[in-house]
Each structure stands twice: as C-alpha cells, then as structure tokens.
Design a protein around this nucleic acid. Structure first.
Lengths: 93, 93
DNA sequence: TAAATAGGTTTACATTATAAACCATTTTAT
DNA sequence: ATAAAATGGTTTATAATGTAAACCTATTTA
C-alpha cells in the first residue's frame, strides 16, 4: 500500500531540482538556483547528494573567465524519479 | 512554480496517516499502525504533531478495559492535505 | 503469581536540512 | 592603481526532524 519513499527524493529542494532536470538536456547551477529560489549553499549541498547517489552528473568548466557548474540527470536518476512519483501516488490519490 | 510544501505533510509517515484519515470517518491507533507499518513510538509522536497543527483530532477512551485512541481528520486537515497535493503536482507532473 | 501481551508515551540518538560564513576570482567604480 | 562590489560557488555550524529503543500502566494468560 504505502511503499517507502526514496529519502533522497523526498526533499523539497532535491525534488525540485530533479523535476527541472528531467525535462531539460542540462542546466546550470545559477538556473537551478533561480528556479528553485534556494540559497547557493543549500543547493550546493543537495546537488552533491544527488551526484553521490548517481542521480545526476555534475560538470565543472568555465564560461568566459567565470566558473560554471552544469548538471544533468542520469538514467539512474530518471528511474529513481519515476519510481518515486509512482510510489507517491498511493499516498495522494 | 515550486510552491513550498507544508513540512508537516511532507513526511512519509504523517502523509500516510493523513492519506488514510481522509478517506475514512475515523481510525484507531492500532489500525493506523498496521496500515502504515510504523512503530508505535514513531506513530505516537507524529500523531501528536498532526494534532498540535489542528490537522487531526484525537480522542482517548476505552474499548472494554483497554485504552483506545481514535483519530479523525479535521476540516483544517483536509484543506491542508488538498493544498499539499496541489502544490506537489508542480513537482511531479 | 509470574510472565506475556496490549496500547501506548517519553526520550535519546542519529540524520537532515538550512543558512551563515567563507573563499577565489572578476568586474566596476574612484 | 586600488578599493569595493559582484559572481559563482563550497564549507561548516546549528537547528530541526525523524526514528526506534526504552519505558510505563494495565490486562490477560500460563
């Protein structure tokens, strides 16, 4: 009935990030920060967790002279997100 | 876009409890415990929080000689649950 | 009458989330 | 030239949260 909800995804900010990343090729740190209206610190920490879980990939480069962090959802991440949503439905429908 | 998710409802166990209570006249502690597969301690704590928020009402009585705790969702609780679900949709759809 | 069960509550602990503080560099203003 | 502000983040300290273990009272069973 109530399947466990992946704790990594059952977090407002991480869920918002995954929600953004699932519908886009890739996204920059600042884009995610604006869309989620989070602080940089919080976002940084949560992106790390998602990366360590293998849900997203993070690439660091430069845009001009400025550092640039680019995020991309992985196949593992897509699967996890879909499973989470599926499980969640049992709670809210 | 991403409206804040009521922290009181964005918790696996509390959400499961609310999900059960919303579709039933009232429910006993032991019923909720079985359906949610939670420990009694955890359930007790979470029910307290829901009650303090005014999302549920808790009545204590006796069934025969045994203590009986009965829970019932309030109108405030119903509203909060519906708002939560509505907000959540932006994250998962 | 001792032990097990029922129906919980309290509390201690571990995990988590969050923002404040920080860092390196770059741009703008003076 | 240089001080001040802005950019693009990361680290870390603290608060808040979730959870189960330990506990409690009463009842039933052996």
């Amino acid at each position: 009935m109530f399947k466990p909800l992946d704790p990594l995804l059952h977090s407002q900010l991480r869920l918002a990030v995954m929600s953004l990343l699932i519908s886009v090729e890739e996204a920059e740190f600042t884009f995610l920060k604006e869309k989620t209206e989070s602080t940089a610190g919080n976002l940084s920490v949560q992106l790390d967790k998602l990366e360590k879980a293998g849900y997203i990939g993070i690439e660091k480069s430069f845009k001009g002279k400025r550092p640039l962090t680019t995020c991309k959802i992985t196949q593992v991440g897509v699967k996890a997100f879909e499973a989470y949503v599926e499980n969640l439905r049992n709670y809210i429908e």
